[in-house]
Amino acid sequence: MIRLNNVGVSFRKENQKKIFGKERQQILVDVSMHVKEKECLGILGESGSGKSTMGRVICGLLKPDCGKVEVEKPISIVFQDYTTSANPRFTVKQIISESLIVRERRESIRLDREKEIRKLLELVGLSEEFSLRYPHELSGGQLQRVCIARAVALQPKIILFDESISSLDAYTQVQIMDLLKEIRKKYGLTYVFITHDLSSVTYFCDRVLFLYQGQIVETCEIAELGKVKDEYAKKLLNSVVNLR
């Protein structure tokens, strides 16, 4: 489904030593990974480890400096910051319609949009009356549900979650994760789940990938999480255990 081969990404540094300096900062170094069909892969790493950059490379928003990216389309995305992920001038109906329009064009079909939107809202546990509301009239959890409905409306093969539930409270997180599990089962989707929260990964994913300073340091199945060899991955695991 997704295959990255030796991908490298770098940005021009903001604070250059010379006036017209060309120093670059390496964000991703020689990243290779793959995701199988219907798998849920967690990408775990601390802030600044390059997880979001990797997400952008996967969904085609960022062209890597080198390496090969193969991603099966269509792909959809749910962002962390729900406050800016929906156009504040759109109603919920229009927000979801955008995905439906793209799907209509892709499959060259006509959809009964009203019906589709009703079905999608029901799927994410919102009532029909929400369809005429604006984003600022919804709570964070509700808006994130709308964003999920929008992502599902596209009927994608892959959905990328970029810290999608990190900014929600613990109870809503569990609710949303259960919802996502259900959707995945129903449509047979592939998930890529970017997060810094280990507990949500263990709750949710099949396989986890540790990212540290732009490099993949360890990949393992969730069941074998106790057997990680890499120092950084161990440290990350321990830090969670210690907190409890």
Binding site: T84, S85, I101
Partner: peptide, 26 residues
């Protein structure tokens, strides 16, 4: 670089839609 425009780009929406439905009203 707002997320809703990134989303439109990601799912491959037309440029015309992004320019006239998202950016222009903004």
């Amino acid at each position: 670089d707002k997320n809703y425009i990134l989303y439109s780009k990601c799912i491959g929406n037309r440029e015309r839609y992004i320019l006239f439905r998202h950016l222009l009203p903004s």
